[in-house]
Design a binder for these strands. Structure first.
Length: 965
RNA sequence: GCGCUUGUGGUGGAAUUGGUAGACACGCCAGACUUAGGAUCUGGUGCCGCGAGGCGUGUAAGUUCGAGUCUUAUCAGGCGUACCA
């Protein structure tokens, strides 16, 4: 019988749906295993062959765990809110919900063809009210919480209010935007508005006046991880800094827990390291600096407290409020001009161009250790968002300060013995401190003590300075994190609406029982004429506090009917807790029931791209920790093990058009030279420059363009002239790039399924190489996988009937093939080395074909072994073998060592490490026997007979090394 | 700059605690069959050499009887990050 993959795959895909094969329920009698893929954003381009890579890998593991007796949760859903659908809506007027719906349908159709074991009854979509109900709910709970540093946990805001009522800010140790100080009497005297403003300083979800990444082209703000190289991640538009009132999440409160948690996770070292860098913990000191002749002081942050004696100036960030306060009248004009210049620069310009700029404020700061007056500058190299936005500059030991000092001709005082700072600064944290005066008048005495650092190592000097500073109240030891609070507002339509209305300009939460607050209809998806976000176009977007329902905007009276929030939540909101929702997706009383959460706990295996390292994977860890503090999530960390599948890249093809013409020239006829100015290769043909143009890969085969096909493709090619090479061919140039619709290098999995079947596609994607590695898609090897499946199929059949015999006892050789395979496949699945498991199947199949083995006791377990990889063919064979139930409910075969034991052991004999020949020993021969044989020259060829044997090294089953003199 | 990571045939990639480097697949070569096809099957295929043999895991050194694997230095690529004080 022939391997008819089309019929087989169709049949089983239908049957799985009909019999709900992959539906799972909590089952206390079985151990759970939770496998999760990062859910996709359903884009208009559909799936390409790169998407399923991770899905296949996790599906294999899920199926394997199921065969091992686990109750496996393997859900799938859609991250349905996002910019592309909204951009499309702006262009075409089509509602993003409709676009999204269509894209999801296409994704689903493509996914179904590949034969995944997803439990679709648990599907979630972030854009559905039943889902975002819980996104809104979590936001409200964050609004109603603050972070207690002492107990390292989120607490209800009511506790904080109670604290304020009793003792104001005394004894407070909480996460906060800025450190406020007030008494209980002051608090109790404030009106409700003032109190709620103050509480914003502490809430985990708060309205904050912050510098944001504003992207004018997209008309919205972006989070730090959504800005790449100073331009927006989506679309590549310029981004500028702007001060705006935005919803923020106090992610920074969890910085230490986010850092500590990494140590408990089975993630790749590189992702953990990326997150550690992103969190950016640094221990240092904050030191108060008084401004000379003014009643003002400011605080600087430094990790190099030991360099206090090398301070020659101070620098403030241009955005700092202090600039205005300290600037002297004489310098006012110059400072104002500088601030104006800084504001004119985009984020991108500031990142690329590191030329030294800055201006003197006219003021002087007093170094509390030396008592010296040092000038205070403003410069853009100091960032407002980190530390205190002010630094002490030590040009001798910081390269940025050094460049600044050279430019403005400021003094440079070396502090480390042997450091040469004539050409560049000495930044290393190694060496002994000098230039700290022992007793002269260059240092200030506090309570009879001077700071003395001479001869101390840098490490000791830092510790000593910290002690000194704290003991004499000049500042304090401080841990800083680079991690900033997440900006949570987006000026977009297609996102979760905030369940918030405004009374007297202060936000109020709509009652929890009224959630979800559904996204309103608008007639335009663009911002309003007054510059409000798209929700400003909604006619029915007000909150009636009497009826607790949405009301028409016309009814707003600011007494009982109030305007609702016009911003929506960012993309990461919906994806932050979706793994919890899968546990209990239809619950409308809670995000997840106590019982479901207690059973499923957290994700055991999470598979997705490493590009989410500083976005989703931080946000959802934060979100989960918050829910853990509430008791909703049962684990501190959401994703125990993480596998990052590599990207499958595409081969892009280029044809070359002579500039200003419609003539395309074969690549091999072009002259190539490197253009230093443009930093890339330039191609010319008879002196005319030729520009690369993408050509769809379907028109190219082995580097040769199908000219007739490309003429059919788009109008611009129809009339084009093609200059062919002497062989009459048009050659293209090729490059490996990320697979993308715009690069015309997308390979669609449907085409592969159509030609070879899903099982071949699954096998091939795993065979391509290690999962975590990026690699270009190349169909060249796919025939090998297809041939293998055909051979595998054929060992079960002779002519048109099943040839498997039931009663024959397998031979030792046959059992050996089987158990070798069980061992290899089991180990490889456990270690995610699928690319080496597949060759094991190929070898076993060839061996069985050679042995002409058609015995049930051998073949049946092999069907189970291959089921995770190629489920359709496994089901078909399983049924042919007479089973009524799905192969999914079979048992994973157990490996038994005894079948691998050999009668004889082949050992290599080497002299001085050089291999000479192999020799067979009876199995179980001990080392002493072998050694004795070697010493008696029983296994020694003539040419070493006269030499003295120094040593005999025996590696059982492998090697006898005879060391001779 | 810093952090992480990877270097093995024509190609993708194997190689257990250090123990016959190159499994398996693609490609290529030869052959078989053939209704001449992009089907199927068999054999060969790291490099140099007619051969015996020699050389081979980015480069250089080290440890070892023995190194792709361990140590040190160095070079090259990939990813991340970027004025974080």
């Amino acid at each position: 019988m022939e391997y008819n993959f089309r019929d087989i795959e169709k049949k089983w895909q239908q049957r799985w749906v009909l019999q709900q094969t992959y539906r799972v329920q909590e089952d206390g009698s079985r151990k759970k295993f939770y496998v999760l893929n990062m859910f996709p954003y359903p884009s208009g381009a559909g799936l390409h062959v790169g998407h399923p890579l991770g899905y296949i890998a996790s599906d294999i593991y899920a199926r394997y765990k199921r065969l091992r007796g686990y109750n496996v949760l393997n859900p799938m859903g859609y991250d349905a809110y996002g910019l592309p659908a909204e951009q499309y809506a702006i262009q075409t007027g089509q509602h993003p919900a409709i676009t999204t719906e269509g894209n999801i349908a296409r994704y689903r159709e493509q996914l179904d063809k590949i034969g995944f074991s997803f439990d679709w009854s648990r599907e979630v979509r972030t854009c559905e009210p039943g889902y975002y109900h819980w996104t809104q709910w979590a936001f409200q709970r964050m609004f109603g919480s603050f972070y207690c540093n002492a107990c390292q946990k989120a607490q209800p805001i009511e506790k904080l209010i109670e604290h304020f009522e009793k003792q104001g800010t005394a004894g407070l140790d909480v996460a906060q935007t800025e450190e406020l100080t007030f008494t209980a009497d002051e608090w109790n005297g404030w009106d409700e508005r003032r109190q709620s403003e103050v509480l914003m300083n502490y809430r985990l979800a708060y309205l904050g006046e912050t510098m944001v990444n504003w992207c004018p082209a997209l008309g919205t703000v972006l989070a730090n991880d959504e800005v790449v190289n100073g331009v927006s991640e989506r679309g590549g538009y310029p981004v500028e800094q702007k001060r705006m009132r935005q919803w923020c999440l106090r992610v920074s409160a969890y910085a230490q827990r986010l850092l500590d948690g990494l140590d408990t996770l089975e993630w790749s070292e590189s992702i953990k390291e990326t997150q550690r860098n992103w969190i950016g913990r640094s221990e240092g000191a904050e030191i108060r600096i008084a401004v000379a002749d003014q009643d003002v002081s400011f605080t600087i942050f430094t990790t190099r407290a030991d360099t206090m004696f090398g301070v020659t100036f101070f620098v403030l960030a241009p955005e700092s409020e202090l600039v205005d306060q300290v600037t002297t009248p004489e310098q006012r004009a110059a400072v104002d001009e500088y601030i104006k210049y800084v504001k004119s620069r985009t984020e991108r310009e500031r990142m690329i161009d590191h030329t030294v700029t800055g201006v003197f404020t006219g003021a002087y700061g007093i170094n509390p250790i030396t008592g010296e007056r040092c000038p205070i500058y403003v410069a853009e190299y100091v960032l407002a968002g980190y530390g205190t936005g002010a630094i002490m500059a030590v040009p001798a030991h910081d390269s940025r300060d050094y460049a600044f000092a050279k430019h403005f001709n400021l003094p440079i005082i070396p502090l480390i013995e042997g450091a040469d700072v004539s050409e560049q600064s000495y930044d290393a944290k190694e060496g002994k401190v000098m230039n700290s005066p022992m007793s002269d008048d260059k240092s200030v005495v506090y309570d009879g003590e001077r700071l003395i650092l001479n001869k101390k190592s840098i490490k000791e000097a830092i510790a000593e300075t910290k002690r000194f500073v704290e003991a004499h109240q000049l500042g304090r030891v401080k841990v800083n994190y680079r991690l900033r609070d997440a900006i949570f507002s987006r000026q977009r339509y297609w996102g979760e609406p905030f369940p918030v209305y405004y009374r007297d300009g202060m936000p109020q939460m709509i009652p929890e029982e009224c959630l979800p607050l559904e996204l309103p209809e608008v007639d335009k998806f663009l911002p309003t004429e007054t510059g409000e976000p798209p929700l400003g176009n909604a006619k029915r977007w007000a909150w009636d506090t009497k009826t607790n329902t949405v009301a028409d905007n016309a009814m707003i009276d600011n007494k009982t009917v109030f305007p609702l929030e016009l911003n929506t939540m960012p993309g990461f909101a919906g994806s932050s807790a979706y793994y919890l929702r899968y546990m209990d997706p239809h619950n409308d009383a809670a995000l997840v029931s106590e019982q479901a959460a207690a059973y499923w706990q957290n994700v055991d295996l999470y598979v997705g791209g490493s590009e989410h390292a500083t976005g989703h994977l931080i946000y959802s860890r934060f979100w989960n920790k918050f829910l853990f503090d509430l008791g909703v999530s049962k684990r501190e960390e959401p994703f125990q093990k993480l596998i990052n599948q590599g990207m499958i890249q595409g081969w892009s093809s280029f044809v070359y058009r002579l500039r200003g013409t419609n003539t395309f020239v074969s690549f091999d006829l072009l002259d190539e030279h490197y253009d230093d100015a443009k930093k890339k290769n330039v191609y010319t043909y008879q002196g005319t420059e030729a520009d690369p143009v993408y050509a769809d890969i379907s028109m190219v085969s082995a580097g040769v363009l199908d000219v007739e096909k490309i003429r059919q493709w788009t109008p611009e090619f129809r009339e084009a002239e093609f200059v062919l090479n002497p062989n009459g061919q048009y050659l293209v140039s090729q490059a490996i790039e990320k697979m993308s619709k715009s690069k015309y290098n997308v390979v669609n999995p449907d085409d592969i399924c159509e030609k070879y079947g899903a099982d071949t596609l699954r096998l091939y994607e795993m065979f391509l190489g290690p999962i975590e590695q990026s690699k270009p898609w190349d169909v060249a090897g796919i025939d090998g996988c297809f041939r293998f499946l055909k051979k595998f199929w054929n060992i079960f059949w002779s002519k048109d009937s099943l040839a498997v015999t039931d009663d024959e006892t397998p031979t030792a050789a046959e059992m050996k093939v089987l158990h070798k395979l069980i061992k290899k496949v089991t180990e490889d699945i456990e270690s995610f080395s699928y690319n080496t498991a597949i060759p094991a199947f190929m070898i076993a199949t060839n061996e069985l074909a050679q042995l002409k083995c058609q015995k049930r006791a051998v073949l049946e377990p092999i069907v189970v072994l291959i089921a995770p990889f190629a489920p359709h063919i496994a089901e078909e064979l399983w049924e042919a073998l007479g089973h009524q139930t799905s192969v999914c409910d079979a048992q994973w075969p157990e490996f038994d060592e005894k079948y691998l034991v050999e009668d004889t052991v082949k050992m290599m004999v080497a002299f001085n490490g050089k291999t000479r020949f192999s020799i067979d020993f009876p199995a179980g021969t001990d080392n002493a026997t072998v050694e004795a044989a070697a010493r008696n020259h029983e296994l020694t060829p003539k040419y070493v007979e006269d030499k003295q044997i120094v040593k005999v090294i025996i590696v059982p089953g492998r090697m006898i090394n005879i060391v001779v003199k």
